[in-house]
Write a protein that binds this DNA or RNA. Structure first.
Length: 235
DNA sequence: TCATTAAATTGTT
DNA sequence: AACAATTTAATGA
């Protein structure tokens, strides 16, 4: 099991292709972008590795370049509740990084992933200098709040079909995860871990959703055909 | 590049 | 939880 400490040691600079999937780089001015790229480091995470844990101090702002992550929080009663998955292009921890506090949730890799990190000092420098970056972070914070509230409902939802549908809709949030197209590489097992259901129930739900025309199930992933239907549960 | 084999993923009980 | 069927990835000629 690797922690932030070991993650920090296995870092390397990013390739051009990896830089391409970082959405907020596009909103920076050339000099801002140069400074950000210079500081960006990437690291590998095995399935099950924690990127960050509740209570740890924030040293980096993290984003997913490739793979799949799970975002969860420990409830007051000790229960673990999953907010959402994080697909490639997703960045997280800005709320805690802003206030230089400790993480309030856990981020765990669902499969082998590549995680990019921007040092918190650079994060704050960008906040102080870049209008575009501020706009990005603000939108991100606002959207994350909405997602958090939605997650509470999803957790209480009885119907597994609708539960899976809403979780998928959250994954395809165009504001939080802009790079994502209509296809998502996620196995049914990974989705099961994410929504907290058994794999066979997820399989059944996906089959139903596919029959309704909301998605198309493919080997090792799925394609969203009707995002609105997933969100509302109206098929 | 193609055929063979191993591993991963899915659909079903 | 276990099984068989299917798809992809890896290997080596």
């Amino acid at each position: 099991m690797s922690t932030e400490a070991s993650l920090l040691q296995r870092r390397r600079p990013l390739t051009a292709a990896e830089l391409g999937v970082i959405p907020w780089l596009k909103v920076l001015l050339p000099d801002e972008r140069e400074r950000a790229v210079e500081d960006l480091k990437i690291t590998d995470a095995k399935a099950g590795d924690f990127i960050c844990r509740t209570g740890r101090p924030v040293t980096y702002w993290f984003g997913l370049v490739d793979g799949l992550l799970k975002m969860s929080a420990d409830n007051v009663d000790g229960q673990t509740m999953t907010f959402t998955g994080v697909p490639p292009g997703g960045w997280f921890g800005e709320g805690t990084a802003l206030k230089r506090e400790a993480y309030r949730y856990n981020i765990q890799a669902l499969r082998k992933s590549m995680v990019a990190g921007l040092h918190i000092d650079t994060f704050h420098w960008l906040l102080d200098h870049s209008i575009g970056f501020n706009r990005f972070v603000m939108r991100q914070l606002n959207e994350r709040l909405g997602q958090f509230i939605a997650a509470r409902e999803i957790d209480r939802m009885g119907n597994p079909n609708i539960r899976v549908a809403r979780s998928l809709a959250a994954l395809f949030n165009p504001v939080l995860y802009p790079g994502l197209g209509t296809v998502l590489r996620i196995t049914q097992q990974e989705l099961a871990y994410l929504v907290g259901l058994s794999r066979q129930r997820v399989n059944e739900a996906l089959t139903t959703l596919a029959a309704e025309g909301a998605i198309a199930v493919e080997y090792g992933g799925l394609r969203v055909l009707n995002l609105q239907a997933l969100r509302t549960g109206m098929f």
